[in-house]
Simulated assay, not measured.
Amino acid sequence: MENEKLKQHATNVRRHILTEVHAAQSGHPGGSLGSADIVTTLYFDEMDIHEGNVNSIDRDRFVLSKGHASPLLYGALCEKGFFPEEELLTFRHLNSRLQGHPNMNYLPGVDMSTGSLGQGVSTAVGMAMANQLDGKPYRVYTLLGDGECQEGQVWEASMAAGHYKLDNLCLIVDHNGLQIDGEVAKVMNVDPLEDKFKAFNFHVIKINGNDFDEIKAAFKEARETKGMPTAIIAITTKGKGVSFMENQAGWHGIAPNDEQYEQAMKELGGADGE
């Protein structure tokens, strides 16, 4: 897909994210906005997933390991046409399919129920192993946060992925340098991530995670890499697209008020926020 079309989809996904979090007056906008370009590229350019095969085992898989970024996943699925836009307003409401962490039992297109950090990576490794054992060509992608890399389970799963040479697995780290308590480097430094994943027998690619050309090139390189899994270290801007949210750890897990929501929607296009 051309970059201009991807950019428009990503802008719409960001608008969906804000709509969800504002309607619920809770949720996690910062990291969701920052990873929107990556996930948009996955769903609209990279992965084999559409309404016709969403319930099939024979397709690519995506695991949102940082499950608190559920507004991003729902925003992408909505933009892809898996559910109507008005359902975004039910985010985190009682009996909604769009809960604060994704539940694969509720919504088609959610490939794993996630929330406990580190567990999504493990399940993605299991999926990739299953495809390898079954001789299936489908790929598995998982997105995790840099703060999530403080979890030991991430590295246990990575050890297995490297050991079993899972070249059908692509792990993407949203490396925005911020987590709920502040700067990742000050809370518990995870760098150098590139060297660590290399030590676990990953092919490592470092990119600007808000640049479509670099994102697409990285996914192509990952597909062409044989004999080892790929880790993409994506340097992103937390809160990308909304000026007052960018690079602000405080927007990790709070919702905009009415005035802030209106301003953010205007920044993303449309004088009236529509």
Rank of each mutant, 00 (worst) to 15 (best):
M245H: 05
H252M: 08
D258V: 01
L94Y: 14
L98Q: 00
L133M: 07
V140L: 06
E246S: 09
C149K: 04
F200V: 12
V121F: 09
G126F: 08
W251F: 00
V184Q: 02
F202P: 06
D191M: 05
D58W: 11
A185E: 14
C78E: 11
G162S: 11
F219R: 01
L178C: 10
I254K: 00
N3Y: 13
P84G: 02
K5R: 09
A124I: 10
F82H: 09
F219D: 08
K5V: 04
S70Q: 10
L98D: 01
G75Q: 08
E183W: 10
S243C: 06
S96L: 11
G182H: 09
R223M: 14
V125I: 10
E87V: 01
A157T: 06
L64S: 03
M228C: 12
D111K: 04
M129F: 06
G250A: 13
Q132A: 14
P137V: 05
G135V: 05
R14A: 05
D211P: 02
Q263N: 12
Q263A: 15
R59P: 11
Y106V: 12
Q248C: 07
H163N: 03
F83A: 13
T142S: 15
E259L: 08
L94K: 09
M1G: 12
G34C: 02
T90C: 06
H16M: 08
N168C: 03
